[in-house]
Design a protein around this nucleic acid. Sequence first.
RNA 1: AGGCCCGUAGCUCAGUUGGUUAGAGCGCUACGUUGACAUCGUAGAGGUCAGCGGUUCGAGUCCGCUCGGGCCUACCA
Length: 874
Amino acid sequence: MEKRFDPKSYEARWQKRWAESGLFTAKTRDETDAPSFCILIPPPNVTGRLHMGHALQSSLQDLMVRWKRMQGYNALWLPGTDHAGIATQLMVERQLEAEGTSRLELGRERFLERMWQWKEQYHSNIRRQLEALGSSCDWTRERFTLDEGLNLAVRTAFVRLHREGLITRGEAIVNWSPVLQTAISDLEVEAREVRGQLWHIAYPIEGSDQRLVVATTRPETMLGDTAVVANPDDERYRHLIGKTAILPLVGRRLPILADEHVEPEFGTGLVKVTPFHDPNDFEIAQRHDLPGVRVIGFDGRMTEQAGADFAGLDRFEARRAVVERLEAEGLLVAVREHVHTVGHSQRGGEPVEPMISTQWFCDVRGMAARALEAVHTEDLRLVPSTWEKTWEHWLSEIRPWCISRQLWWGHRIPAWYDESGNCFVTLDEEEAQKLAGTDRLRQDEDVLDTWFSSGLWPLSTLGWPDEDAPDLRTFFPTDVLITAFDILFFWVARMAMMSLHFQDRVPFRTVHLTGLVRDAEGAKMSKTKGNVIDPLELVEEYGADAVRFTLCALDAPGRDIPFDPQRMAGYRAFGNKIWNATRFAVSRAGEARVASELSPDGLEAPERWLLSRLARTAGTVNEKLEALRFDEACGQLYHFFWGELCDWSIELAKPALSGEAPRPRAGEVLLSALERSLRLLHPVMPHLTEELWHRLPGVEALGWESIALARYPEPMPEWLDERVEADMAALQEVISRIRAERTERGLPTQTRIVLHVEGGDTRASRFLLEQAALVCSLARVDEVVDGAGPEGALRDRVAGVDLALDIEAPSLGAEERGRLEKELEKVEIEMRSAEGRLTNPQFTGKAPPQVVEGTRRRLEELRERSRRIAEQLA
RNA sequence: AGGCCCGUAGCUCAGUUGGUUAGAGCGCUACGUUGACAUCGUAGAGGUCAGCGGUUCGAGUCCGCUCGGGCCUACCA
């Protein structure tokens, strides 16, 4: 076997073999009786390459699905990608710009051709990246949110919701992005704190020389004012209600009205009303039946209706111009510094323009209530559960979802208009024509919000709207969704709503929400900061298994993941450890073979101990995975393999395998335990374990073509052996004590040490004497003697055994004395604390008996230690 | 404005229903390399668990307040 551990030498090879073998192709219910297990990939955007967040989620998903597959489930991990409307369209538009052309120049059809080219390229990148991580996806079922099947699902959902009156078209204030030239949803708006001004502007009152003063942060919108309102209870302005103000610069007559919405304390207590450019004003206008005026256009420039002086100006230029004019006319009463929040487009970063517009809206209140209910009844579990409150808050406050986008890349809205503007919402144009009685129809220009199709992902990928689709019947509802918390509302909530609406069932039973992968300084990774790490570069440097192990081991619930290259190097070293442990076992096991069945009967203590620890680890790992505690499962695997199998079992096997102190079945047990350990590790480190597994002698007799299909180890209760674990724990403690003494005194390796087991015939001391060969080998003791040691030997009580170490060396130096004094001090402090508790009747009376008993035993041990240390110092 | 999360060793973080001796990895120190592994081994140093108060026989863990950091939600012009 090669001495060098080199992941590159086998990772790609196994990826290829897995892809060709079809091992990961799931079956339908008609093809297998095995219970199903399904994870749907959160489809990555075809905007670019995968980032660390994808690597994290993919590692976790693959861990889950490989584990379940090994447990005998019909396991499906369904891969796919998302067309990601705005995001992807922007990428291609940027490309066109560089080529000196534009989407408008190309026209819809040719532009979409370019989009599909882009999609093909980036989609194949993503697939390569997933494969490079060792993902056991079922590529025969891969989907894309814009493919034909998904399009049918989208149209079906839209038509049904429309028939149910839940999707409607209408005029309302939406968040408009003048840069992207489309409406965006509330979720795509980011509130940012901005230092602005509050301008106080005087409006003359008709038929009087009096003026009223309104306060606004957006003076340019005054050109579209159609009223002024005050709170009905505001004494200061009661006399004005019913009168008319004259809009400066424009001359429009504005009714002065009373409306509860106004907070008398804010500003001047008078609000100018601009129905078409402010959501609150729009509502006020509806209450009072006020008209509106569009003064800002979709391009963010002032319209003709803003007046000749301002038309064509950018909205921010217009603000300056309006303020200047007001000042010149003596109508600017005051300017106050004012910090307020302004909505910004999450993607473009520019301030969003609240704007009246005709859009499609989806009323999601009913669905939201059901999604909320599903969490209450625990049909849907959020992990960690701290997200439940956030879920509750968002879903109970939900408002209509603006689902139309003025883009070209996306699902075209299935609505057609005849020449008189009648609208027909149908599955296809043919049906619309029948309904309309004409073929002179025009399809709605808009496309749907990306998240509308993503929201249908659990249904559409499994074959819906065909209710009898085999995959839908086999895998819906799916089992676990693993995704980052930042798309809880964008995506998770919408999938829950859609699935409950169309299937009356939750789309998945459990949602595992991961944190964000951050850089070494804890900053969020972003392209603008330039701190993005490409997972493939890490795979190149550390190997896919180390990347996977690191990410899984760091996935603590509710916590972000600080990316630390040293940590990854540590897990690469773990791979090296596994490699070399296997190399040792294979090269030293002689004629031994991996056993398919193994019973602890007739085995000696070190072997029984190994099997017991292995069984215990298998139990814990399964439990941790069941609980989605990937970090703890990985921790268990790491500590078992390195800290027990390598540090102890291999060392214990050495004297047996070398013939020094033969144990006939040591090699067989070591190989067999190693084989089970590789299986335990396989879901996290698939390449390494597959590579090594095939090299174990006798593994072919187990009858699995791949470790990926081998049975995941169960807890194996018949292997558990508490007595041997206790015996071995004592042995280990004694060995550690002797090793510590040697290093702390700085004794050379050759120094002769004889261990005397003094004082009696306890189980532990008998065991120690029986295993004398192991003590000699592991603690480098020359001899283990039953009975009292000589005068001047180092005496200590360890694990209940009285020891005397006869060390051929000069007596204690000052340094060692200091250390012992410190040790004695610590022991005495703890003794006093234990004594204090034990003499306190409150403690002995109220604490559980086993706690009190434990304290007693502890105190006894401490007294003995203190006596022996004092003896050394004397 | 409301809500959530976090503060534990030099660094990054574990610590399930309160139980006595608070753990891990990395880093650090000392020693060790003719055979599994220097991507290693053995041992060691390092913590008033942010602070204050409370409940309790017993608090890193439960409760309250304070300080510090992060995040989410929100139409005060």
